[in-house]
């Protein structure tokens, strides 16, 4: 019995063993449900599998030929890129502003903080419903403001603007939280020193604040990009890709082709065009981490 206890103690004390035992479940899980399915998606993109006949049949470049001939695909690719770009720029700027406001000292700060979190914590589909109701339904404030029934979600430039705006609205709080973290990790003394050194507002901003928060701002931009280009909730609920596919994005298109249309091959091939964006994101992460260390 004592020998047994000693054995167990020695086992639980060995660092190498513990590290593996602690990490292994996560590694196995993520490999099985992220890496393997990713490989499967690549395989599906070169297949003629459908939901009626889901078993794998090699199809070569058939799916790609099909989507390249489809103008909706090109439209979606462009929209996805444009939406991501606009969202990054707007979210980073607004997120920085909001972060500074939330860190300032004022009355009702707790209330404001909780309200600011609303857009991000609310399930995306629900807030998209709310916006659709607000922008596009009879009797809503925007409807009354426009004095006639033609909703901004049913017209061409305004529908795309609405999608981008809701995406920015939704992600700004998240970026703000990340930038807040960057701002609070700058030692307080550095702010004091800049004040004492006689630097005015703009010099403090350009010479101290922005350079010091650049890494964390990059992270905020990256998270914004990752969430925006992968999201299908906003487009699906707000505009459904319309009017006339003018707000269609790749994730929703992949869903339409692969799940509703039943053509797993083209769906996978469509989704695969998000991969370069993902690689770009990974590249940024590695750069930021290398600079940080």
């Amino acid at each position: 019995m004592p020998a047994d206890a000693g054995q167990r103690a020695r086992f639980a004390d060995r660092e190498g063993f513990l590290a593996w035992a602690f990490l292994l479940p996560t590694i196995v899980y993520l490999t099985a449900l992220v890496l393997a399915p990713f490989g499967l998606t690549v395989a599906f993109a070169f297949s003629r599998s459908t939901s009626e006949a889901p078993s794998y049949r090699f199809g070569g470049l058939r799916a790609f030929r099909e989507i390249f001939g489809d103008h909706v695909f090109w439209r979606s690719l462009l929209d996805t890129l444009a939406l991501t770009g606009v969202a990054i720029a707007a979210v980073v700027i607004l997120g920085t502003v909001v972060a500074n406001v939330l860190l300032a000292d004022f009355r009702f700060r707790r209330t404001v903080r909780a309200l600011v979190l609303l857009p991000w914590t609310t399930p995306v589909a629900l807030s998209a419903i709310s916006w659709r109701w607000l922008l596009g339904s009879p009797g809503s404030p925007v409807d009354r403001l426009l004095l006639h029934g033609d909703s901004p979600l049913a017209r061409t430039p305004s529908a795309a603007v609405a999608v981008a705006a809701v995406q920015v609205w939704r992600l700004t709080p998240l970026a703000a939280v990340i930038v807040m973290a960057g701002l609070t990790s700058i030692p307080r003394g550095v702010w004091d020193a800049a004040l004492l050194d006689g630097a005015g507002f703009w010099r403090r901003l350009l010479g101290v604040t922005i350079p010091l928060t650049l890494p964390v701002t990059a992270v905020a931009a990256l998270v914004t990009a990752a969430v925006t280009f992968a999201d299908m909730g906003v487009v699906r609920v707000l505009t459904g890709g319309g009017p006339r596919d003018s707000t269609q994005v790749l994730p929703v298109l992949a869903y339409l082709r692969g799940v509703e249309g039943g053509d797993i091959g083209t769906g996978a091939a469509t989704a695969l065009f998000l991969f370069p964006l993902f690689v770009a994101g990974v590249f940024v992460v590695l750069r930021v981490m290398r600079r940080g260390s």
Partner: peptide, 15 residues
């Protein structure tokens, strides 16, 4: 891994 977009996975995961 946390950056892998879900649209790249949902078709395979549904299988």
């Amino acid at each position: 891994v946390s950056l892998v977009p879900s649209p790249l996975l949902f078709l395979s995961l549904s299988r």
